[in-house]
Design a binder for these strands. Sequence first.
DNA 1: GATACTGTGTATCTTTTGATACCGTTTTAT
DNA 2: ATAAAACGGTATCAAAAGATACACAGTATC
Lengths: 209, 209
Amino acid sequence: MIFEKEILKKIDFITENELKEEILKHGEILSFKKGDVIVREGQYVKILPIVISGLIRVFQTKEDREILLYYVEPSQTCMMSLSACFFNNQSPSQALAMTQTDILAIPSRFITQWQKQYNSWNNFVIKTFRKRYDELLDTFESVAFDHIDKRVIAYLARRKSQQESTRIKISHQQLANELGTTRVVISRILKQFEMDGKLVLHRAEIELL
Amino acid sequence: MIFEKEILKKIDFITENELKEEILKHGEILSFKKGDVIVREGQYVKILPIVISGLIRVFQTKEDREILLYYVEPSQTCMMSLSACFFNNQSPSQALAMTQTDILAIPSRFITQWQKQYNSWNNFVIKTFRKRYDELLDTFESVAFDHIDKRVIAYLARRKSQQESTRIKISHQQLANELGTTRVVISRILKQFEMDGKLVLHRAEIELL
DNA sequence: GATACTGTGTATCTTTTGATACCGTTTTAT
DNA sequence: ATAAAACGGTATCAAAAGATACACAGTATC
């Protein structure tokens, strides 16, 4: 059971009390288990998900490879859903629950309505677009100009700071998928890092030093 | 002199007559010559530019290299300006007039106001964000997964369709900057294409066949 | 017309990354 | 318990792209 108090804590970027009430009234909590598909490619999207707890991975698949768009963390929403709701489009991407995840589902009809009525909602919408753009630009720059070893380090560092632990559970294959390369390349680089004393490798787990 | 009729033609995505009048009333036409800097990095942005004629190049500079974000064509606006106006931020990027360019400058205070009042304006705002995101994603994918020769061809094809001519005025060095690589690589690839009979090279100009 | 700058062709060498293949270990499923 | 799948180490080879260097032609400037 999720209490209203917890929900309100996650949407503290909403300043108008009236809007808070509306959100609690019209939003519905949906729960997903690890590995559940939340949105399929091509599916029409009727709700906007705001993550209350857990983590959602949003990605596209193109010719048997995945392109990671972004993760949706608590207090955030999915830009692609936002856009799809807005224009009543099909979703161009897939969303997957990475862990047990609870979302607050807002029916799409409220999105533009609230944008007009509530400043903080409109801010939320615009910030979501801008944030994802900046993230993508970051990724783009690192793909364009950095070597893979640097990207691996950056990825691990980000994971470390997100989860407050130096042990990162991920297989070489998964890491390769995240960075858009192959398993052999990742194994090679990680081994080198281990020899340099930067980390220790365990099965499906990387321990940062 | 730019006539109201021409302006209205360029903003035909605006459906409300009332808004059209407001735009004509509060917007101001600004003209730039080829090469003029329209926005500097770090500058506060007080107006939203809608291009009436010409072309604007929006890019960032990082450690002596340029990162092209996008071009703003007639009827379009600059996402970065939109975002900067919205949050009263400094512009993280530079904008440069590629040719003689006329813009319709909308004072920033109207942006959110009109978003609330006019659906077509809000659509314009959201579409701008989404469009630039999609473009960036496209570029990202081609950088991540395509070889440079394919990217060169794609770049030339886009330029061709934009300007309705098979002769593209660009030097190898400029082309290298656009694609984030070096002159030698571009010369090498273009020469190969010429030998394959796909194009003819002239000085600072490429003729597509 | 001399000079400097820009644009281009091309050769050589190196680094990075990808592709493939093979092997052993550990975990999972039946 | 046994087979299958997932995980990872490593070697070899090839391709793509970057770095550097040099030559020379066209263009602009004075």
